[in-house]
Design a protein around this nucleic acid. Sequence first.
DNA 1: TCTGGGGTCCTAGGACCC
DNA 2: TCTGGGGTCCTAGGACCC
Length: 417
Amino acid sequence: MRSPRICCLDLDTFFVSVERLLNPELIGKPVVVGGRLGSRGVVTAASYEVRTYGVHSGMSIVEASRLAPHAVFIPGTHGVYSGYTTRVREVLERYTPEVRTASIDEFYLDFSGCERLYRRPEHGDDDATIEATVRDMRQAIQRDVSLPASAGIGVSRRIAKMASRRAKPAGVYMVRCGEEWSFLAPQPVRAFPGIGPSTESRLQSAGIDTLGQLMTLPPGPRRSRFSGLAESVRAAAERRDRLGRERPAFREHGQFGSTLGSISNGCTFAEDIRDPSSVETHLLGLVDRVSWRARKRGVLARTVTLTLRYADFDTITRSRTGPATAETERLRATVVDLFRKNRTRRMAVRMVAVAVSNLVQPRPQLSLPLGAEPAPVSQAIDAVRSKHGFDAIKVGSTGGLRFHRTGIAPPAVASKT
DNA sequence: TCTGGGGTCCTAGGACCC
DNA sequence: TCTGGGGTCCTAGGACCC
């Protein structure tokens, strides 16, 4: 069997790089993209210049500004980033049709079997052919989209992911066929994708520090606490899953028993909110947004989940499953009911979120199931939003409308509200 | 110095049915 | 009246990723 060749392509300090394209004065300066200075936000991207001061993504803005007061803090230009993601993907698709967008700044490509297509006399072997192709692709992104990227290549997605980290900044790193174990073994357990702070500390207290130690834990009938994890690491060195099945390089939404995912929106308040009815108002806005996104994607949701975070960071989730719907009013009723029944503490609320999951595609039929067909008013609102964006209209708790932009004619149906 | 937002996946317990 | 084993679905929480 031919060895699988997976490439992980990662855009370097993506948000910072895009901001520098928009404003070249930021080039060479320490830049932090995140929430507003003094807000409750966290760092979403930090330039290499500011990382030397200990600033990293996920850190609170307050902490970052203490470590690097001289840095330029920008809130970020939401809405423009995904356009660059699309442009990068277009470049990648020139090299292989097997491209998956994993996140706004990360892609996986399958080059398995592409060796003959790209073979040149100067390449020594198949590995060298693929590596040269990926180097060329990386340069094409720099040339055509002006964004720096790094790429890792290996036998599985996890190996490729780890290789791409080693390639940073703006490089390519290949784990050659057969060298997977020697690549993994000396690395700390935390380097493996999927092992975070919690698992790391559990492993460490059992005296396991490196992936080599973890991989050589005996498999088999006497399963230790970590044997499943050890098997995951061993599997990453080959093209199979934890249960030994050979698996496809990529899995599509809705394929192989997977689901259509979930859609969620949430918000952390600038200040904790004590008044329940004020929290409910925010919830209604979130439901509005989530249900709109579901309708845009053409899916119905069977499960609705409310997340409630109190001022002391205690966080609860409550969900309810029922008939599939994407209708705002039905979802609003469920979420408000979940909130009223489950806000048991008197404490002020810090954050709320609404998610829909258990998504299904409406079956094509003459009469749509209840909730699949938007009410006339919703339809009119959706139409305006498709043209002008979600924020063009705000729907009040009673269904009343507010137009946030001038020059938009209210839909005729909505005028009766 | 408190700790975002949008996701995925896994686990464990309970209900319910056969 | 007591006693089972599976399988599936639902719920809640947690770990992790970018």
